[in-house]
Design a protein around this nucleic acid. Structure first.
Lengths: 252, 252
DNA sequence: CGCAGAGTTGAGGCGCTTCAAGAGCGGTGG
DNA sequence: CCACCGCTCTTGAAGCGCCTCAACTCTGCG
């Protein structure tokens, strides 16, 4: 869950929120290479990607990676930690549109207009790899696999959001929570965690906002699931006791 | 609104639903060039795009442009007509994720896995320009503007969906309908229509599904808005009488 | 004319929100 | 040390918004 190179505050001289640092590029040997952008890239394109990904940036808990309105310059691959993405399309009303963990790409919202449209905030101390967009664009001209990979990731994001819409559009509280937990578990499992036990990095309020329900309903629904023996709860720790019955909740 | 070449069954041996036809490429002189992919492309890249977009396809009302599971081979630019896109992520439950009109791009959902994840259905007799994806990829290697444009369109789609999520996540019936009508009006206006009067191409059921509410609530909410003098209704025809008050509904 | 599909309208009930109170926990300072 | 505060979370009770069920209208069509 934490990082590989230097633990916290290794080098000083930070720009804006978060610390940037150069590092030896190594997408090819990164432990996230099977999940992140490098997936399936041939050796020579990996090397080209390495040339682009030359910087990392730390984002302490509570800090923004970027805010709505910020000039868009780079995509970010989550290296460690956990983020939330939210819109304020209408002032005074926040809508969380997703949560991101290691290996996932952030910043795609900025390409369209050249300015970011989302706020992205670290929910725990996190680190990202910086992928300057113009360099990525230039490099991927000679790296068809990489170009295609970028398209794939964007397309996946579009499809992911379809799922969220389905969740928000058609499901009741219990189904939403079930879908939410199963989704997190699946993603964690893909990253080598158990997929049975997990720690929610978001507050109940953030969960509720994301799922389109109030904090009280989140709490009640989770309690009810625990009473039914579906999960075991300990504050933000969740253990999925009966995944099959959770899945069954969605099949209705 | 109908077609250019031959009306239905002109040439036999058509592939799947819909008639395909070759045509003189002319993105540069298409009346949608300011809305569609060509936006802002230099002359020489336009020519390259023309080489890729060499086919049109008609899709009669009620027919699918593609279905979930279909092999992904091309993107489609809507030339005329109106489409709905829907998921069946969980069998038996449909969720409409969007409606598309002239100049908008369809098929982005297929890039991620190589198979489409959505059903896209024509809600009226429609026509699309076919953009074979591998050719687009190849061509955009030498056409940085085009490459960037594709990215932009995908990013815009991602951002668009954020808005829908906000709508589904946080709004009540009246706000959803208001947002829905204003969004349609804005898009029609961008295409040269009045933006005051429009004909809804979708049924109340489809509207409700998209907005995450029942057909009855859609109907009641529209009636209430009419009673309040916000809109005038005549079946599927909607006239927006007081846009400002509709906007105000969202500001809450 | 009768029928099917789309839409409207009404009545009642349920699920979620709202409002409110209190518990649990970490941090701070006397 | 514990009292106190702020924050998160839980739980209960009441109300309302939307859903469900049902009846009816309207339109197009054979």
């Amino acid at each position: 869950m934490t990082n590989v190179n230097q633990q916290e505050g290794g080098d000083e001289g930070s720009p804006s929120p978060g610390t940037s640092s150069h590092f030896e590029p190594q997408c090819g040997s990164c432990n996230l290479r099977e999940i992140c952008l490098p997936v399936g890239l041939p050796e020579e394109e990996l090397a080209q990607l390495d040339r682009v990904v030359s910087q990392r940036r730390k984002v302490p808990q509570g800090q923004c990676l970027f805010r709505s309105g910020d000039r868009f310059a780079a995509l970010y691959a989550v290296r460690s930690g956990f983020f939330k993405a939210s819109t304020h399309l209408i002032e005074t009303r926040e809508q969380i549109s997703g949560f991101s963990m290691a290996g996932e790409l952030l910043g795609l919202d900025g390409i369209s207009t050249g300015n970011h449209q989302l706020d992205v905030t670290a929910l725990e101390d996190s680190e990202v790899c910086v992928i300057p967009y113009d360099q990525l664009e230039a490099v991927s001209r000679d790296a068809p696999g990489l170009q295609r990979q970028v398209h794939r990731v964007m397309s996946r994001e579009i499809v992911r959001e379809q799922g969220v819409m389905m969740l928000l559009g058609g499901m009741r509280a219990e189904e939403r929570i079930a879908a939410f937990l199963l989704n997190l578990a699946r993603r964690l499992q893909a990253r080598g965690y158990s997929g049975r036990t997990m720690v929610l990095r978001m507050t109940r309020e953030e969960t509720g906002n994301y799922l389109g329900m109030t904090i009280e309903t989140v709490s009640r629904t989770l309690s009810k699931m625990q009473a039914a023996g579906l999960v075991r709860l300990d504050k933000r720790e969740v253990e999925i006791l009966e995944p099959d019955r959770l899945v069954a909740l969605l099949q209705r």
